[in-house]
């Protein structure tokens, strides 16, 4: 157990260095002037550049020096969280990322509950009715869900919720709520608007934020519950075949209790353990959803940066995601190993 954690921790720096290598390698496809943008600290430096100025800047930031020197200089900058200036966001890349991240985190966290809840519910039904009509219907439903691209399903949801029902608008807040949040009295504790709203006693703001989350959450969760359903179904089928289930039935325990008390509780272990992985997957999989619902998180920021060729921002977001997922995966794996001893044998 300890050996497993130590081994993972020892590998971690190598993976992180590898991540910087890969991003640095991708940077090499840009010409020096484009790469220069990643070194600029404020927009003034970019204004009215003559070709001599560019030459001077390239010299100044050492972009004409050998690759390994450039790499070391670049890593030094990253360690100090200096990621350059973003034209799209009109602020340093670091600030642009950090100011959008809470929105994405809020979306991912709120999406986890419906995904797991619906996924487990359907998975249990599917397993209990194995190979009968209900099971078949759910499985067909799941395979269709898993074939729906998020940009098709998301637009469809936007059409229903906003176009037809007029209930759940895109964006993150209504104008009036935006005014409340940016006012002096409203304190930002977590950056998660629903929670901040409640902490500030402004339940109307929390409700408004929640209302804007409905569309993105449905879009995100529909794509994920097929996954949870699959895991629940197979582990439930496995649990239902165990001897303690036969014993419980032989004792005369009602079938409802056999399923929900005995089998389901044991079947949920693998589901709980994928939840952490799922949060990471949700954090990484929000580009399309955020773009469709005009939700101001990191995903939409990344899409805008790509569309407008804001290289420093794109590279910054890539690095951010790389580090986030590497460290996040490590935490999830270690927690997994603590919960389930079988993993340690690998």
């Amino acid at each position: 157990m300890l050996a497993y954690i130590v081994r993972r921790l020892l590998i971690l720096p190598f993976i992180l260095i590898g991540v910087t290598f890969l991003v640095f390698f991708m940077m090499q496809f840009l010409d020096p002037v484009q790469r220069l943008a990643a070194y600029i600290k404020s927009p003034e430096e970019l204004k009215n550049l003559s070709s001599e100025d560019i030459e001077r800047l390239i010299k100044r930031y050492g972009l004409d020096r050998p690759l390994w020197v450039q790499y070391l200089e670049w890593v030094k900058k990253i360690v100090h969280l200096d990621l350059g200036w973003s034209e799209v966001a009109h602020q340093p890349v670091k600030d642009a990322i950090l100011s959008r991240f809470p929105a994405t985190l809020e979306l991912a966290l709120f999406a986890v509950f419906p995904v797991i809840w619906v996924g487990i519910w359907l998975g249990v039904i599917s397993a209990v009715h194995r190979d009968r009509l209900l099971d078949q219907v759910i499985r067909v439903f799941a395979i269709i869900g898993w074939s729906l691209p998020s940009f098709v399903f998301g637009i469809f949801i936007l059409f229903i919720l906003y176009g037809v029902l007029g209930l759940f608008p895109p964006g993150r807040l209504s104008l009036w709520a935006q005014a409340v949040v940016s006012s002096q009295e409203f304190k930002s504790y977590t950056g998660l608007l629903v929670i901040d709203g409640i902490l500030n006693g402004r339940f109307d703001v929390a409700l408004d934020a929640l209302r804007h989350l409905v569309g993105p959450i449905i879009t995100l969760s529909y794509l994920w519950w097929a996954f949870i359903l699959r895991i629940t179904r197979s582990s439930m089928l496995e649990a239902l075949n165990k001897e303690y289930i036969t014993t419980a039935r032989a004792k005369g325990v009602p079938e409802r209790l056999v399923i929900h008390r005995h089998a389901k509780r044991n079947a949920l272990i693998p589901v709980v353990t994928v939840a952490g992985m799922m949060v990471l997957g949700l954090l990484g999989g929000v580009v399309i959803t955020e773009t469709i619902f005009d939700y101001p998180g990191i995903g939409r920021l990344a899409a805008t940066a790509s569309q407008q060729l804001d290289y420093p921002l794109i590279l910054g977001i890539t690095l951010f995601y790389g580090f986030l997922l590497v460290v996040g995966n490590l935490i999830v794996d270690v927690l997994y190993a603590i919960i389930d001893p079988r993993v340690r044998l690998e």
């Binding site: 590998i11 190598f14 993976i15 590898g18 991540v19 290598f21 890969l22 991708m26 940077m27 496809f29 840009l30 997957g281 954090l283 990484g284 999989g285 580009v287 399309i288 995903g299 990344a302 899409a303 940066a305 790509s306 060729l309 290289y311 794109i314 590279l315 977001i317 890539t318 995601y321 790389g322 997922l325 590497v326």
Partner: peptide
């Protein structure tokens, strides 16, 4: 396998998007 891990460190769509933009 560690190199594979590095490539897997990025969310697929984000990584593909970034590389497409750069190329």
């Amino acid at each position: 396998m560690r190199v594979t891990d590095i490539f897997m460190a990025f969310p697929f769509l984000v990584a593909a998007m970034v590389l497409t933009t750069i190329l």
